[in-house]
Amino acid sequence: MNALISQLVNLFAAVMLILAFAMLSQRRVITLIHLFAMQGLAVVGATTVVAYVTHQHHLYYSALLTLVLKVFLIPFLLHRVIDRLNVKWDIETLFNIPTQMIVGIGLVIFAFNVSLPIARFSETISRGTLGIALACLLLSFLMMITRAKAVPQVVGFLAMENALFFAATSATYGMPMVVELGIALDVLVGILIMGVFMFQIREQFESLDIRHLEKLKED
């Protein structure tokens, strides 16, 4: 029974990785946000399973926090932002999506290789998933740096936070509750500030393309 449950953690990790790739290949902002909410749900599932197996009660609270924040509140805020900015459809990428996929495979291989020796010293039931968490982290980072518009970059940032949280859960059964609460609050405040920024960028340049920010002077 216990073996099956630890396999369940692996399954949730795999779902996270699939969703990370789906986000990387996604061309529509609105689907991207749905995928982000689903990834949050996978994190909630994995955290709950780890909490159940290890009887770490604080993990239940962090799972609940993730559920409220990353599955409901933040996607809701993002939906509102894109509604107001009217940027529901296309995502501009800096280089084409198949190339990103190939780079993504490279990143996954790198992450798996790096995490194998680390996982060997770990005693947790979910040690195998550290590599997957690292891969998700790198993929979200890739997504963040290859998008031209502000909204997908913010989603990339949030997905990175998801992966970090998952890495913490799988490597050490989660961070102390205070730290987790602090991070959750940071993310929430971060998303509000970024929302304001997006409106400002749009106001200044009449577009959400952050390449405009590279010009420091008005010409």
């Binding site: 990785l17 790739f21 993504g104 495979i105």
Partner: peptide, 17 residues
């Protein structure tokens, strides 16, 4: 290409886990 990539990652995940 995404199908191929998913299949390759399936193999990698098998080797990792």
């Amino acid at each position: 290409a995404s199908a191929f990539m998913l299949a390759v990652i399936g193999m990698l995940v098998h080797l990792l886990l």
